[in-house]
Design a protein around this nucleic acid. Sequence first.
DNA 1: ATACATACC
DNA 2: GACTGGTATGTAT
Length: 418
Amino acid sequence: MALLPRNAKAGMEGVDKEKMQRIVYETSKGSKYFENEEKKEALLRQKIENMRAQRAKLSAADLSHYQTVADRRILELEATRDLSRIWLHADMDAFYAAVETLSNPSLKGKPMAVGGMSMISTANYEARRFGVRAAMPGFIARKLCPELIFVPTDFKKYTHYSELTRKVFEKYDPNFMAASLDEAYLDITEVCKERSMSGGEIAEELRKCVNEETGLTCSAGVAPNRLLAKVCSDINKPNGQFVLTNDRMAVMTFIFSLPIRKIGGIGKVTEHILRDAFGISTCEEMLQKGGLLCALFSHSTADFFLSVGLGIGRTDTPQVSSRKSISSERTFSATDDETLLYQKLADIAEMLCTDMKKGGLCGRTLTLKLKTASFEVRSRAVTSEKYFSSSEDILKYASKLLKAELPISLRPTLVSFQ
DNA sequence: ATACATACC
DNA sequence: GACTGGTATGTAT
């Protein structure tokens, strides 16, 4: 059985999900992509089996030891709980699609997706009712919704509107953290205090202001930390908000019934592992099974799981760290023509070099990412003595890496690390 | 340092 | 017919 694609998004009530699943399945069944997905799922099942076996091997003494470890760690984490800050997570509603509708109002009310036949990056709410969603290939989306309108991606436009929203965010928190073009975290503790307003009142005002400045709507979550604020912004999407008060009991009540998949950082795979190997589906169960988690996961992963169970997240404002990598990748139809592969590599090297020059960046490690015709992904890296940034250097290292892989049928990529 | 996986938008 | 692209981070070796 295939894994479910992604979170069911808002606006999907009263829709024939089974029929949609079947269309998605029928459309991709038998493809190279599908075969690769099945292979990955088999590996995941294997990994889960291994974890179940490890779990079964734990003696009563082990279990009691790790329970003690978990109990102590829970107390330590609880001691770090900070309820003094108010965080707001702002999330634009169907951002790219909404921007495109703004510049072409005739799209209003019609199912529409931003992207093309190979991939969709955003679907508006009308399209979501048909099961169309981000990260779905366009040709499948069109099967789900034959009248779907496709609009090509235009990052310049989205960047412009993103800047408008950021001017608003700045007024509430000059140090706000941009998470992407359409999402940001704001520490609104000070502004709440200065203006004697609640987090919810600030959120209402901010959303109204964003709407006036851009014509777009957004949703907001207000909570004592960023992890919770992010969960909250999704609750009353679109054009809504949700406030979680700075009260330990309120936080615990909220988090306990929450499915773990709602938490940022817990994706499809982690959800599957925790459910099938440990019977964990809600955040409360993270705490209840804390001993097992401490026994079978690394220190940092177990810590993350336990803090999720406690509803503890980051409340600090880290200074903006410099970027750690820059990459350029392009997927093309599979070929084993070596001359063509080198040509593609040169093109990507050129694009990467352009981006590096633009950012005034250079790197020491070059990673060549290869996608085979069967959708398998490989990476090969070299680290040089000195930093480099010229397209000649990039191509020199990349060619060497590619040469070692030939002969091969590829649809590749190129990455450079710092 | 390298390879690969996971996650997020 | 067709399943992205950019960045960060975790885990294992």
